[in-house]
Design a protein around this nucleic acid. Structure first.
Length: 271
DNA sequence: CTTTGCACCTGTTGGC
DNA sequence: TGCCAACAGGTGCAAA
């Protein structure tokens, strides 16, 4: 999926076109997402006005008064705004038609995404209630990460990708953050020193910030609200670079699997 | 509680 | 060229 930078780029692209607009019509062409799109979603949405578009973790939260439309892009989802919607393409599953005739269109080849209606208080919804801090929250600091990893023997990369610890960091950005922090992905979380965890906090924020500035990463499916790809994949230090020379020291980048996810690291820069 | 592996689904790629 | 297994940005869930 889209990780945090792609979701945030989508949010920033979508929000100006939808905030203040009223929903005129909902068209669900295929309700078979990760969970079925609720059959009464149209009845709930039509006539309501979008007050704001927020993001929590990798969820987009369209606020309608105290109620929320929750959208997740899964692995291959994208959300685009069309002034005038073109003919549907494959995997276009949902259209939200606004009162000015523009259309918010959800496309998702693998259908791992979600579109759910969440009555207030949204934070209490099970999907949101379990989430840890945002990477840019003040609460996500070295002390927090230190305490949170004391009882974790699993690899630091797996801990970093655990949404209860911190949200928004998926496979690409976990790999890139650990490279920048000089930490080997396989190292047990509780064996990483507090000083190095402080470096990891900084690295996560730096990588995510730079990725957002480049419009996120596009490996295949991701496009932003305007249909534009991201460009951060051109700046990867390790992700997808198995066997290629490290951009810092020249040693060949290595790949191994952690929890079924490909993990890339420089054997010389990361210890 | 943590950890592990599977499941969901479609499309692309690489090896034979 | 054709076929098929492996793999892909996420994450809830069951089981150990």
């Amino acid at each position: 999926m889209p990780e945090l930078p792609e979701v945030e780029t989508t949010r920033r692209g979508v929000a100006p076109h939808v905030v203040g607009r009223r929903v005129a019509r909902l068209a669900v062409y295929d309700s078979r997402l990760r969970w079925p799109v609720p059959s009464d979603l149209g009845r709930r949405l039509v006539g309501r006005t979008v007050a704001a578009v927020d993001r929590r973790s990798k969820y987009l939260l369209f606020r309608f008064g105290s109620d929320t439309l929750l959208v997740h892009l899964g692995m291959t989802g994208s959300l685009r705004v069309f002034r005038h919607a073109p003919a549907r393409r494959p995997h276009d599953h949902v259209d939200i038609v606004l009162d000015d005739g523009s259309v918010l269109r959800y496309n998702d080849p693998r259908r791992f995404g979600a579109m759910l209606w969440v009555p207030a208080p949204a934070d209490a919804h099970p999907l949101l209630a379990i989430l840890g801090p945002e990477p840019f929250d003040a609460g996500f600091d070295a002390g927090y990460l230190w305490r949170a990893t004391r009882t974790r023997s699993a690899a630091i990369k797996l801990a970093l990708m655990d949404n209860r610890l911190v949200v928004g960091v998926g496979n690409i950005y976990a790999n890139e953050s650990l490279f920048r922090a000089g930490i080997r992905p396989t190292l047990s979380a509780h064996r990483v020193s507090r000083a190095r965890l402080a470096g990891l906090v900084d690295a996560v924020r730096t990588v995510l910030t730079e990725a957002i500035a480049k419009g996120g990463s596009t490996l295949r499916d991701y496009v932003d609200a305007s249909g534009e790809p991201g460009y951060f994949q051109l700046e990867y230090f390790v992700y997808g670079r198995d066997g290629e020379p490290c951009r810092v020291c020249g040693a060949p980048i290595r790949m191994r699997r952690l929890g079924a996810r490909a993990s890339f690291y420089c054997p010389r820069c990361q210890r």
